[in-house]
Design a binder for these strands. Structure first.
Lengths: 68, 68
DNA sequence: CTGTAGACTCATGTCGACT
DNA sequence: AAGTCGACATGAGTCTACA
């Protein structure tokens, strides 16, 4: 059975953010996105675009590949 | 200098599609997206979402990781 | 078969406010 | 610090049509 990609991506972002001891607000600042949006992405409620995903990957200092 | 991710993703999709000898229309059918949309993605004009990217990856029979 | 255009609907991403 | 809400502007994704 298939895992919703919004959920798996959100979980991965949350995991990487916590490993780096960042708050959602700090990650928002680092990635140039809104804090409430980061929250909804982490919780699998948003279908993020590749440009926003790249911003988050940059904020987390990982390559996009590592979010999938 | 940074390559626009819309362009690098579009180029990669086009490359994988051609390796599989698929037309844009065939890929559209396999992935459940509109042909004209596939065209604009391949040409770097659209900021595709992860759900649509997953559909294209499925149509190409690759993992999303391999499109980045 | 590919590329583009225009018109359309609905979701992304922003922001202020509250728990 | 994290989660959610409602309003908003912009853009994703569809569809018909034509070169």
């Amino acid at each position: 059975m298939e895992m919703d990609i919004r959920i798996s991506v959100g979980n991965k972002i949350k995991e990487l953010r916590r490993e780096r001891n960042l708050s959602q607000e700090e990650l928002a600042l680092l990635s140039g996105l809104d804090r409430t949006y980061i929250n909804s992405v982490e919780n699998g409620r948003r279908n993020i675009s590749i440009i926003s995903l790249e911003k988050i990957a940059n904020g987390l200092r990982v390559k996009i590949r590592n979010i999938f």
